[in-house]
Amino acid sequence: MSINKKIVDDLVANDIEFVTTVPCKQLAGVIDEVEARPEIYHIPSNKEDEGMGLCAGAFMGGKRPAIIMQNTAIGVTINTLVTLIQFYRMPLPMLISFRGELKEPVACQVEMAVHTKALLSQLNIPTYHFHKQQDAEELDAILKYTFMCNKPVAILTDATFWGGY
């Protein structure tokens, strides 16, 4: 089974029906898989804070949401994470491509990579790092944990996890 299919199978198995995405090269396959699934309403957003607003609305409407985005988005969304998702206590699984790690070809991506875990830690956001493909075996448990505790939870997926470029 492809890793993209396994990830989206876990989303569907956890009743996630509303997924917003902002693209990243590493996430192209999983975004295609989200788009292909009839169980999921896929709504691309123009910016990640907008996407978190969509997810907050969907959650209050009774649908489990998720956001798929790049780690640069942590810089974009700190205010939204704190004043919307955390302040109102909403669950939000964030599947994040961790650019700027080993095998990264673009130097600028490293500038955000060195801050990513520190920012997530400062925000008290539970954070999991998928480096090898078997790490994704925990995704199902991470999703259950997210909807148990009503928090944003970060799943960082690096280039080694995705098989490099």
Partner: peptide
């Protein structure tokens, strides 16, 4: 009524997500 206490700009996004979900 859902009152936004912060997060300027996202009222329309929250409303659209809510409308699409129910």
């Amino acid at each position: 009524n859902f009152y936004m206490l912060g997060t300027m700009g996202l009222a329309s996004s929250i409303g659209l997500g809510l409308a699409l979900a129910q």
